[in-house]
Structure formats: C-alpha cells, structure tokens
C-alpha cells in the first residue's frame, strides 16, 4: 500500500515535472510569429532605415559573428540591409524576408535557432535542467527538515534577537 502510494506520488511528480518543463519551454523560449500583410511594391528609397533595422536587429551575417546585422559596419552587411530594403519594397513580410535569407545562407542568419528538429534541444534543455535542479533542492530541503526535531514554540521575536545578537557580536569586537 505504502509502495503503491509512493509510486503514484512519483508518477505525479514526473507528470508535473514534464508539464512544467514543456510549459517553460513553450512560454519562455518560443517567440510567436507575427504575420504581416503584403503591401504593394514601392520605391526602396521610401522604406525608412528603422523598418530595415527592425528586421536586421534579429539577424546575423555569417562573417561578422556576434555583431547584429543592424549595427554591423562592414560592406557586406550594408548590402544585406539594402537587400532587406529591396524586399520590403517588394512587399515581402518580415517572415518572408527572413525565410529568404535562411534559404540562401542557412539558419545561422537568425538570432535564434528556429524551433524545429534538433534545435528544440536548445529551448528544452535549460528549463528541463532547472526543473531537475529545483526538484533536487526541494528534496534536499525536505530531507533536512524531516531529520530535524521541532523547534521551540516560544522563539524570541526577530527584532529582539537581532539587537541582542548584534550587541553580542559588537561586544566581542570592541
């Protein structure tokens, strides 16, 4: 009977654990996709820099590692930004533009790996590890508490004790 209940508790904990991991992975890590309406072709010169940078800030060129595309000063990155402007003028959405670059240069142009296939691991492992860690910490705390006798009920209040302790310490150092 006891063994049964232990097993069910364990099962419940495992379920919670998987649920929390999945939830954390889904809510914290996966950015919702924002679809944009297609607009007609316009003169690229009328596309403001801010519109280009809004897309470029989440992209990296394969050469300038660790420098986001919107602030990279190289000629190659300048050309990429102009290409984004061109694609925006053609009426492409942010997703379509990013998809274009991914197709040409691979997933590495995105600031985050797209949540698919092997890339899922990047999003799942940290919350999974955190939940495992939290579980261990919780278990350690419980085992510590279980092994400790109950404390006296007439504990001194925090302020009294604080002043008393402080005085003791200061006395020793005087």
């Amino acid at each position: 009977m006891i063994r049964e209940s232990k097993r069910s508790i364990l099962l419940r904990i495992t379920n919670y654990f998987l649920l929390i991991t999945g939830f954390l992975a889904a809510t914290i890590f996966v950015t919702p996709a924002f679809a944009q309406a297609t607009t007609p072709t316009v003169d690229p010169g009328t596309i403001p820099d801010d519109a280009v940078n809004a897309i470029a800030q989440d992209m990296f060129c394969p050469v300038c590692e660790s420098t986001p595309l919107d602030v990279c000063g190289t000629q190659a990155c300048h050309q990429w930004r102009e290409l984004i402007r061109q694609l925006l003028a053609e009426g492409q959405t942010e997703e379509q533009i990013k998809a274009y670059f991914v197709e040409q240069y691979g997933d590495r142009v995105l600031a985050e790996p797209p949540a698919r296939g092997f890339n899922w691991l990047v999003y799942v492992i940290p919350p999974f590890a955190f939940v495992v860690g939290a579980f261990f910490v919780f278990r350690v705390m419980r085992s510590w508490r279980a092994a400790t006798p109950a404390m006296s009920a007439d504990m001194p209040t925090v302020d009294d004790e604080y002043v008393q302790r402080l005085e003791e310490e200061l006395e020793k150092r005087a």
Binding site: D58, P68, D107, E112, P113
Partner: peptide, 23 residues
C-alpha cells in the same frame, strides 16, 4: 549549442541575445 548543432547536423546556428534575455 551551435557547436553541437554543427557537429550533429552539420549546420551552424546562432544563439543570440533574444534567447539569453528571455531565458
């Protein structure tokens, strides 16, 4: 992760600021 990804799938990925900030 980018190194593991390159090793396993032969494709490099970037794990950039949005990932770290959210996590």
């Amino acid at each position: 992760f980018p190194l593991i990804s390159e090793l396993v799938t032969n494709q490099k990925v970037t794990v950039g600021p949005p990932f770290y900030e959210r996590a």
